[in-house]
């Protein structure tokens, strides 16, 4: 895993607030992420981690607080103040979003190759042969048979759909990936394979990622740093193995001690 980080962050969030009725989903959350770094956000369901991910990625507006992103051209840009067109361009080029349910991130009535190629065409690729070659290359990167390129995603298993979603997202070589429970809903054997694949891709591409998961093993193997969320608040942050092996906050201790050992 990469362990050298630059001085300036890629993404920075300050004082994020969000309520849904009486539920305080994000309560004064601040965090930062550096190029090439993987930040895990852990906590039980309902702790606000998916809401936070959606706010960080510009998908929903916070009630207060600022999310800034270091654009390629240089300088920090407020994700929620930029225009719709600029944000859409970011989502197509610099960013990836991997949903827990691959159906939310794939076009189910378009072939596997089409799903990957579509992202390329969105950033201006026009040469059919090259698009198809790149799609084949990416299917192989995520360990899918090139022969399945013309098949529809619904003929794939859940694990294959998830790998296809990852290929579709990473084909444009983004700098930042947002992942919401990327291994959730998959069989344990498939999870290990996906985890290994993700770890390799993140390392090879120098990709930064924010990974929301309730699975502490996933967090341990993928992330450099962890943020632990409870009832909308980040209660503990730190080096991943330190947070998991020597948790300080009562809630983190409860979370870590509640895992059943196989």
């Amino acid at each position: 895993m990469k362990t050298v980080f630059s001085e300036s962050p890629l993404l920075q969030a300050e004082g994020i607030e969000k309520r849904f009725g009486r539920v305080h989903a994000c309560n004064d959350v601040s965090l930062d992420l550096y190029p090439g770094e993987v930040l895990g956000i852990v906590g039980e369901s309902g702790s606000g981690k998916t809401t936070l991910l959606n706010i960080l990625s510009g998908r929903i507006e916070p009630e207060a607080g600022v999310v800034e992103y270091a654009v390629r051209e240089g300088g920090m840009r407020d994700v929620h103040q930029m225009g719709a067109a600029e944000r859409r361009m970011l989502m197509r080029t610099d960013w990836a979003f991997v949903h827990q349910n691959p159906r939310d991130g794939l076009r189910m009535n378009v072939s596997a190759g089409g799903n990957v190629g579509e992202r390329l065409m969105a950033v201006g690729a026009r040469h059919y042969g090259q698009i198809r070659d790149t799609a084949v290359d990416w299917l192989q990167k995520v360990e899918m048979e090139a022969g399945r390129i013309d098949d529809l995603p619904r003929t794939f298993s859940g694990g294959m759909q998830q790998r296809l979603q990852i290929a579709r997202n990473l084909v444009t070589r983004p700098r930042l990936a947002f992942m919401d429970e990327p291994t959730g809903g998959l069989d344990v054997s498939v999870q290990a394979r996906l985890l290994d694949l993700l770890r390799g891709l993140v390392g090879d591409l120098g990709l930064a990622a924010i990974v929301v998961t309730h699975d502490l093993a996933v967090a341990r193997h993928l992330s450099h740093r962890l943020a632990v969320m409870r009832r909308g608040e980040v209660v503990e942050t730190g080096l991943t193995d330190q947070v998991l092996d020597d948790p300080q906050h009562p809630y983190t201790q409860l979370l870590v001690s509640s895992i059943l050992k196989a």
């Binding site: 362990t3 050298v4 980080f5 550096y34 770094e37 450099h224 740093r225 730190g238 080096l239 330190q242």
Partner: peptide, 9 residues
């Protein structure tokens, strides 16, 4: 944490 990771490397 970044400095700790670099020291470990």
């Amino acid at each position: 944490p970044h400095a700790v990771l670099d020291a470990r490397r």
